[in-house]
Amino acid sequence: MRAGIILFPGINRERDIAIALEQSLGHKPRLIWHRETELAGIDLAVIPGGFSYGDYLRAGAMAAQSPVMRAVADHAARGGYVLGVCNGFQILTETGLLPGALLRNAGLRFLSMDCHLRVERSDTVFTGHYQRGQVFRAPMAHGDGNYFADAATLDRLEGENLVALRYAEPDGAITARANLNGSARNIAGILSPNLRVLGLMPHPENLVDKLMGGADGKPLFDSLADIGKAA
């Protein structure tokens, strides 16, 4: 499995995701500058968190217009894998690779804390090392994580089973209290119809080592390491 991390000016969790990928893959992922126009030789493109272009226009909106995102779209169209975390998720919705939008958090404040995520399906390359219904902990750190889509889109996502992760209580209950940023139907992460693009707001890459308080996020990267292994 060969991974590449897309770098936009203002991205700031590229080293975090590189550490998590390297730990599970056993090799350093490639770094891909935003001016590059082709993604040759990688299986997985990762768009990390941060504040691309300062989030000054709208989170992810400017990065979505950059040359490398056309290459990411081509990569996805060829059936390549794409993971967008936090700002990366916002960029994926801005490019239309995933539906919906991330609005300001319901409380209108930046939220930095651990949340609990319930795994809605485990038959994807992103979640294979989790069990369906399993709850894991992950830090979140965002001001614009409130997932929004119209009711028809939400119904389609649910109907096609494309919701990957939901904000939950530690026991798995889906409650308003667990839904810290106010996301529609507690949605924390969604998949493309071919299950090869995942966008999520929280940061499993920041919880892959007991020393940092837990390894709850590590199965996600272990799952990705299986890409290309005997299917």
């Binding site: 080293r15 975090d16 930095s112 804390m113 750190a141 920041n206 020393l211 940092m212």
Partner: peptide, 26 residues
């Protein structure tokens, strides 16, 4: 809760967890 305490992936003890914050060197 309004400050990102985990970016960098090296925060061993976050605010409130210890008398001093512990940040590892990558």
């Amino acid at each position: 809760d309004q400050y990102d305490a985990t970016v960098g992936g090296q925060t061993v003890k976050r605010p409130g967890q210890a008398d001093a914050a512990i940040v590892k060197i990558d």
